[in-house]
Design a binder for these strands. Sequence first.
DNA 1: TTCGTTGCAAACATTTTGCAGTTTC
DNA 2: GAAACTGCAAAATGTTTGCAACGAA
Lengths: 126, 126
Amino acid sequence: MRRHSRKRDAILNCIRQSRVHPSAEWIYAQLKPEHPDLSLGTVYRNLALFRESGEVVCVATVRGADRLDACTEPHAHFICEQCGAVLDVDVPQDDLRSDLETRYGVRVRRSELLFRGVCSACRETS
Amino acid sequence: MRRHSRKRDAILNCIRQSRVHPSAEWIYAQLKPEHPDLSLGTVYRNLALFRESGEVVCVATVRGADRLDACTEPHAHFICEQCGAVLDVDVPQDDLRSDLETRYGVRVRRSELLFRGVCSACRETS
DNA sequence: TTCGTTGCAAACATTTTGCAGTTTC
DNA sequence: GAAACTGCAAAATGTTTGCAACGAA
């Protein structure tokens, strides 16, 4: 049975309010000033809970670190190889998924559509 | 300047001949019997070279470990959440990529299209 | 009072790196 | 012989876990 916890709320809110598809470390750094006794272990433990319950989803692994998203609607992402930014991009995928299921006999539960390259901001400054 | 090396050849051949999208550890275990003095560090160092030169590509990160592929043609993958298998699936993506470039002003260099779920083999045995 | 939650530090897993010896050219 | 390559072990990085103290119901 899950109880109420201030830190858990803060972690979930942090993910929901951010648009950066944060890593565990980023969340920790973000909350630390307001919750000086927060520990990284707590962040990870709550992230595990959120992922189990489906409130949060892992959308990519960038340079070894998982990147999270509280928007669980399937959508694609673009990762800038220069600045590490993770951007939402709109790629309709319902057809792709049902197509795969019929052609390969698999059950598709989630998808992780990543495009990597250089974002428009980094293209300008180089 | 890159020199010739037996172990490097063995590592690249191992990736090319396998169909499992191997991890570094898997390659190491595969080659160890025939190259008893092989070290995991050498595997990683050569993988880094291959990735730099484009001979090998990382197609996914499964349970923390990078999975590699010597087939560098862009193609999509299906990951079985039960058995961890990584399968090739055919998803045409030229249109997706050029579409993204025009809509978002980004440069797409690589794509990593992952679908996760249950493979047909695991569906049958459950 | 019960049991979920947390801080802390130690343990883990994957990957990287420093160094001294070896191989390739 | 110079420079690339390697084994080995230590370090770095991201994540998990054991335990005793804490906090919510």
